[in-house]
Structures are given as C-alpha cells and as structure tokens.
Design a protein around this nucleic acid. Structure first.
Lengths: 220, 220
DNA sequence: CTCACATTCAAGAACTGTCTTGAATGAACG
DNA sequence: CGTTCATTCAAGACAGTTCTTGAATGTGAG
C-alpha cells in the first residue's frame, strides 16, 4: 500500500520543483532556448552557485537536462510536455488563485494590454501587411529563435526606435510568454506615444509549441 | 520588475500545494466526488487536524473549495482544469522523472496489467456485450458516480465474487485513476484465477473529464 | 603539466513546511 | 440555552528548503 505514496512522492517532487518563483523564472528563460549557468544567473539576478542549485533541483525532477558543451554546462527544457505542465499551472493559477488574480489585477491590468491578439489573428494581419511585429526580448533570446518577420526592438531601445520612425501601421509586441512584463511595458509606452499597439497572446515558447514556423538565423 | 517575481510566487504557491504526496492523495480522493474532512482523513490515513491543514493548503492555492453543508464542511475540486494540471504533472513525471519510473517499474510493471484498455475500446466491447466491467473502488466512491453498466466489486469482495460465479466473458477493471493500485491488484488476482482480465486506461475522474456519461444513482 | 574558468559541492544560518497535541470555534439539535 | 459534534486554530518539535560563502572538481587552452 506504500507504493501509492511512493509514486505520489515522486510526482510531488516534480511539483515541488515548480514551487519556487526563481525556478519558474529559470524555466521561462530556458523555454526561450538553451543556456549555460552563468547566463541564466545573470538573467534571473541570482548568484551562480544558487542558480546551479536551482537547476539541479529542476534536473532531479526531470524538468530540465544539462549537457556539457566545452567548458560550460548547457541546460535545456526536457521536452515540450514540460511547457504544457507550466501552461496548465498558469491556467489554474489565473482562474483559481487569489494571489495570481491580485497581481494580474494590480500590475498587468493597470497597464492595459488586456486585448491580446491571437496567433491566428496575427498571421492574418501579417499576411495582409497590416502590422509591424516587435520582439521586445533581449537580442540573445531573439537570436535563439523568433517569429518570422518580427523586428527585434528590446525594451531599452524602444524609445530610440520610435524617434527614428514611428510606424504607420498597427504594432503588435511579444516577448517570453503570456505574463512576461516586457510586452506589457512596450504596449504601454507605444500607446503613450500615440501608436495603435497591442500584445500578442503568448510568447515565443507558446508560438513554437503550437507548431508555428520559427526563424532561427544563427545555427550552431 | 518585482511584479514578475510576485506573479511567479503566486504560481509557485499553486505548484507547492501539489508538492506533497498526501495532498496529491487527497486530491485524487476529491476527484472521485466531494467529501467531508473526517472521511478524507480516514481514506488518506491521516489525523483529522492534519487533513484539515492539508485541505487548507489546497484551498489557499485555489485547487479545492470548501462549503459548509450542515454540520460538516464538504470539500471539492475547484474545477476540471485542476484535473488537467494533475494529468500534466503525471505525464511529465512518467516521461522524465526517475523516481516515478522506478516505482512504476518496480511495483506496477511487476504486477503486469500494462496493456490498458482505452475508453473507446471499452465502449465498443460493451456495446457488443463482450465484457464485464468492474468498478473496484469502495462503495461510497461508486455511489458518487460510475461508468454506466459497471459492477461495484471492491477489492475486498473480489474473491467472494469470483467464488459465486467466475465470468464467462473478458473482465475490465477500473478504479480512481491511471496509477491507482486497486485496478492493478484486481487484474493480478483475476488472472491468477484464470480470468482474461485487463485494466482500463484511466479511472472515473478521467472518464468524467472526457465528457463520457456517468451514472449517479444517489442524488442529493 | 599547469593555469584559468565554469560549475558544483559543503557547511551553516535563517526560514518554511509537516505533524502532533490539546484547546477553541461555530453550527445543529434537543 | 446548553450540549454535541465536525472542523479549525495554536504552539511546539523536527525536518526540509533557500541562500551565502568559500573550497573543490573537472575541462580546455597554452
């Protein structure tokens, strides 16, 4: 009868690996593309040793894999079903968790951007040439894959980009995922400058997971 | 920039609620039907106070809801998407977690029953009258809903049932879910008595979640 | 072979989760 | 109105998690 609890303990280990904000952050980073420990530490604002420990917790649970490439150890998400699990966690959190609702209400709702554009909608508009698509992630993440036809304008360079030439057409922005702050910020700033701007409903990992084409200029 | 971590912390709370074997057990029980605290404590072999605490962790996360009914407080799973989340956790665990693979290999694989019958397959066979379907869960769970046409033969009464009349046709057994021990045990015992027996791929919660008809004799 | 570098390990401090025990709450019923 | 019963709360012991610091490992370059 203890087989049941042994099995549940193993499933619980997987759940516990997701049960920490920093590890969810690292997982979101890894969903953009594989990365070495030091790069992840910088993105997550953690020390290298601490990042290493979190990555090992994720690896023990089976959520990520690490492989040595030269001097570095490069981590990646095990498989697409891990992204499905995180997506299921997001769905439940959005619908039933008070903490999630509070943050979404306070922060994300406040800066509008709620009318997200669906993938299908974007594809139709792009086919008609009616839209400028911005990838507002840092260049290294853009380099690991992006939506074909997207312009890489990191948030830090958005004001510069606007000065040079405000777009004539509607702007759609995307970043790392459905609740990544970058696209929300970008849309807020674009609107304050008078642009017609909206947010894509999902980031690159979701686009990739949906089986849609991804442009990957730099191949190893 | 802390909005991101606040949001991830909220999602992490949901994940942590799933990060304990007893809470996963309670959640499986609740997936069979709503239950009061004392009944859950008995099923999970926990003290009432401890069960109450676990239920509150699940409720804080938003995974279950509690409502007073008379003298008791009856808990239930918030919504079907919670079952989807647990299913996603199961998928990832089965595919990528070494602990899960070890228990499945040692215990479940050992007692065979791996060739699970799909829902569609069962429905075809039942339409042709080729199969005896056994619900090997305790009667209270059977009473909260079961597959139409199923016979309630709890594991404790299986030997008695076999003595009276071993079935002429093939037997399919199901219980609480894909990794519930009851159906595995039942299939093992049936086979040892010479029956052609197999396990249904999924328990009642999965059947219900698939939108298939459920018989519920006792209505409140 | 040695050096430099990326990562991991080890130990410790602070915090969080779990389970036990016994008391407190609060609705139902006489 | 007080008793009964199901549940929750509170406090304490113990185990597990997280982060920091500095040392250890192991790979590649010179």
């Amino acid at each position: 009868m203890s087989a049941k609890l042994d099995l549940f303990s193993a499933f619980a280990e997987v759940a516990r690996a997701l049960g920490n904000a920093h590890r969810l952050d690292l997982l979101e980073q890894l969903a953009q593309g594989e990365r070495a420990v030091e790069a992840l530490a910088a993105k997550a604002s953690l020390t290298v040793a601490n990042t290493s420990q979190h990555l090992q917790a994720l690896r023990r649970a089976g959520l990520v894999l690490g492989a040595r490439r030269g001097k570095q150890i490069v981590y990646r998400v095990s498989d697409g079903d891990v992204l499905d699990l995180v997506a299921a966690l997001r769905t439940v959190g959005e619908r039933h968790n008070d903490g999630v609702k509070a943050v979404v209400g306070d922060y994300f709702h406040a800066r509008d951007g709620l009318e997200a554009v669906s993938f299908d909608e974007l594809r139709r508009k792009m086919a008609d040439g009616l839209v400028t698509l911005l990838d507002v992630r840092p260049p290294d993440e853009f380099a690991d894959g992006h939506v074909p036809g997207a312009l890489n304008v990191p948030l830090t360079e958005l004001d510069l980009w606007l000065r040079d030439g405000p777009p004539g057409s509607e702007v759609v922005a995307y970043c790392r995922g459905p609740w990544c702050v970058l696209a929300f910020e970008a849309v807020a700033r674009l609107r304050s400058k008078g642009c017609t701007a909206s947010r894509l409903d999902g980031g690159l990992p979701e686009w990739r997971r949906a089986g849609l084409p991804v442009e990957q200029p730099v191949q190893w």
